[in-house]
Design a protein around this nucleic acid. Structure first.
Lengths: 238, 238
DNA sequence: TCGATGGGCTGATCCAGATCAGGCGATCAT
DNA sequence: ATGATCGCCTGATCTGGATCAGCCCATCGA
């Protein structure tokens, strides 16, 4: 299970703790691509763990624009923040068909009371998510389009590497350039142009559902990518 | 104590829980304006609760720019994220002289184990902080300079109202236009111009250390400010 | 088989906000 | 009393990325 793998990067979980996580298998559900699981303004107090597929969390603006806050990959929580806040401040949309397991507020209380170490591990995961949002903020606020895009793809690569789905060579993605634009605060037109620049600079390619890092070190340098905020020790094996 | 007041907006804390918080008084420290308390890359695993004064958390880029992620006001946590992550991914600078109380990682574990409700309240505060960062991300990504600035000041007003230091009429601030620019992803020059526009549109004034909301409802409308992400029920009394 | 749709790609034009280059007044140290 | 510094303010110019308008190709349902 990808979550166990991810949390394992932070603390060695005991058998009992892993059992708690594995016990969640029972509440498995699936959702189809494109139809929101959580909608802005809803007050369900339910979160999910993503088991397979990709999702994204985003906010809509009145004028019809939207900002994608982050993509979620297997092992990530969906909507954990809205369990504590009374109203969900964002929407979540599956990018692909996805499988999830449900977490209720009661589960969280249970985890806090019974297995403080597991609670701490969840707290770590939440902190890491927040660190990623902060990094996106910095990217949108201060990096130009090319650096921002490169940085974003490097981050995704590192995150996927942690669950065994990416490496320094690249990774498979289910994203469109429109999704990327919504995440990066750019127009789809400009995303396309920037991808061409990166390709022409022999840094990476982005096509047919696969990112290939051609010059990983050059790219890291270009994007000023310092993965320490991801808190992964040896993030990229290959 | 402002933290008690803030958490009280989420759960009614028991006497015992308040005692735990009040017990932190002993580890009070002060810092002078401008000198970083926490520096990017440091690995101290210590956080603080801000008792008085303002601070800001920010990230530096290689090219000398910086992005302020958020300002902290009394009752807010400083650097809580870096207690869990092994390395602090950001810096924290006091905007004014500040008073803080220290929280060690051990305290946090203690809180999780002993008083799960308090732990939940802290979790709530962290979720709220994250929701604010997300809102800033949306602002920088998709709002124009004027909307972004107005939204930001309205948010600050609401946050200060929660601890009794602001209202629909306005609030006192210790910020410069340069700080505002670093927070909003704008240049200081442009912040100045936008402030003039907002003043000329009879929406607000920003001078002599005091924000005055001239047309609160008009401003809310203009900035598309929906405070539900702050999870405050009756945020603005006056 | 042929529209319709969705994703990718491109050139031309436009504009919000950056950058450059200052000026003004208040405070403060010598 | 005089620089130096800091915060605020302004006009002129430049530019990164948006917007507009459209083409190409693959897929898919009727």
């Amino acid at each position: 299970m990808p979550l166990v793998r991810k949390l394992g990067a932070f603390v060695a979980l005991s058998g009992a703790e892993i059992d708690v996580l594995e016990g969640l298998r029972k509440r498995r559900r699936t959702f189809v691509a494109g139809r929101d699981l959580v909608h802005q303004g809803q007050s369900d107090q339910v979160a999910y763990i993503l088991m397979s597929g990709w999702a994204c969390s985003y906010k809509d603006l009145v004028d019809g624009q939207r900002q994608i806050v982050d993509f979620q990959v297997p092992g990530d929580f969906l909507g954990l923040r809205s369990v504590l806040l009374h109203i969900s401040d964002h929407s979540i949309e599956p990018v692909t068909d996805i499988e999830v397991t449900e977490i209720l507020k009661a589960d969280l209380l249970e985890a806090f009371a019974q297995t403080p170490r597991l609670a701490l591990a969840i707290f770590w995961a939440v902190s890491r998510d927040e660190a990623m949002v902060v990094e996106h903020l910095v990217g949108i606020g201060r990096r130009n389009a090319a650096e921002r895009l490169a940085h974003f793809l490097l981050e995704l690569g590192a995150r996927l590497a942690l669950i065994g789905q990416g490496s320094k060579a690249g990774f498979d993605y289910p994203l469109t350039q429109y999704l990327l634009a919504d995440a990066l605060g750019l127009s789809a037109v400009h995303v396309n142009r920037v991808l061409r620049h990166l390709r022409e600079a022999d840094l990476l390619t982005f096509r047919d559902g696969h990112v290939r890092f051609i010059d990983y070190d050059g790219l890291t340098d270009f994007a000023d990518f310092d993965p320490s905020y991801l808190d992964q020790v040896g993030p990229l094996l290959t």
